[in-house]
Amino acid sequence: VQPERFLEGLTPQHCALSLVGEPIMYPKINKFIDLLHDKGISTFMVTNAQFPDAIRDLSPVTQLYVSVDASTKDSLKKIDRPLFRDFWDRFLESLDALSAKNQRTVYRLTLVKAWNTEELDNYASLVSRGNPDFIEVKGVTYCGESKASNLTMENVPWHTEVVNFVQELVDRLDGDYEIAAEHEHSNCVLVANKKFLVDGKWWTWIDYPKFHSLMKRFKESGGEEKFSSDDYMAPTPDWAVFGAEERGFDPKEERHFRKKQKDV
């Protein structure tokens, strides 16, 4: 670990409310979000789209993700193994709730080869329902064998396959979205609403000081002084734009490549 990165990590500036469990279920989640914002820490909330009322009641966050792991009832049941019998209704209602949020919203699609990569028309229909600002499409990561999953390396798409899927999806979105950025190393592609394309340049990044300023005014006004995702966008670096030679890798960072293994 580089010393400067270690010191930087002692003063967190961003908080990801995700990974284990469902953070939106925490009864004091809005209070926790307020505490983070008071300390100048941005908030990235990820929900599995099973609690639409909680989405509606959620305080503004820097960016709100909904996991869209499949586009049909049958495939969602297969991939997510939901707990609720009315999981599909909850899922659709959550997308409706997302469309009413003012801050940055994201559909997070995880592509599982041979499981959910053939449902393009259905995905397009879900996009038109929730109208997210962004669609983040990532190839599934294989983490080894597990009793909880029967995934294998055969289910992991190549980056070119992810790009091809995204291009076909964008073609079905009535011209409202375009591919904006990619990170080849993460096997991830970002689609953005064209409102973030300003004078021919993408503005998909976040102006964090502006967000905290807007959030402070929102809180002090008792929620009367509202703001939207357009109000705190920042320009996308050239190296992160889709099609750039760097393929999303920051040239200021040092990249390490594995030595080519000898043939056995």
Rank of each mutant, 00 (worst) to 15 (best):
D174C: 01
D121P: 07
D174N: 14
K78D: 13
K77M: 09
E168G: 11
S128M: 15
T152G: 09
W88P: 10
M153N: 11
Y65V: 03
R81L: 11
D121N: 15
L64C: 09
V127E: 01
I79K: 00
P82C: 10
R85Q: 14
G139M: 03
Y107N: 04
S146P: 06
P60Q: 07
R104F: 04
L190W: 14
N187M: 04
K101E: 04
D96L: 09
V127Y: 02
A114V: 03
E145W: 07
D89L: 10
D53W: 00
D96P: 00
P60A: 03
D89I: 08
V112P: 00
P132E: 09
V127M: 01
D80K: 13
V191E: 05
S71K: 02
C188P: 00
A192S: 15
E145H: 10
V189D: 01
H159D: 08
K194S: 07
F87H: 15
E168Q: 15
R172W: 11
T72E: 05
D174L: 03
V106E: 07
Y107A: 11
V191N: 06
D74T: 13
V156Y: 05
L169G: 03
S59D: 15
S99T: 10
A70Y: 02
T105W: 04
K113D: 03
Q63I: 14
S149L: 13
A54Y: 12
L83Y: 11
V140T: 06
H185I: 13
C188M: 14
A70K: 02
L64Y: 10
D176L: 12
S94M: 04
D89R: 11
V106K: 03
G144Y: 01
D133Q: 10
N164A: 14
I79E: 00
L120P: 13
R129G: 03
A114E: 14
F87I: 06
V163S: 02
S149D: 12
V163L: 10
G139P: 05
R85F: 11
N193P: 07
T160P: 00
E93H: 05
S186K: 10
L173C: 10
D69I: 00
F91A: 09
V127Q: 02
D174V: 01
L76E: 08
T160S: 15
S71G: 12
N150C: 06
N187E: 00
G130Y: 11
N187F: 01
E145C: 00
L169Q: 04
V68D: 12
E182P: 03
K138N: 09
V112E: 11
A70E: 03
D174E: 14
P82E: 07
D133W: 09
A180C: 04
W88R: 05
Y123S: 09
L173W: 05
I79D: 01
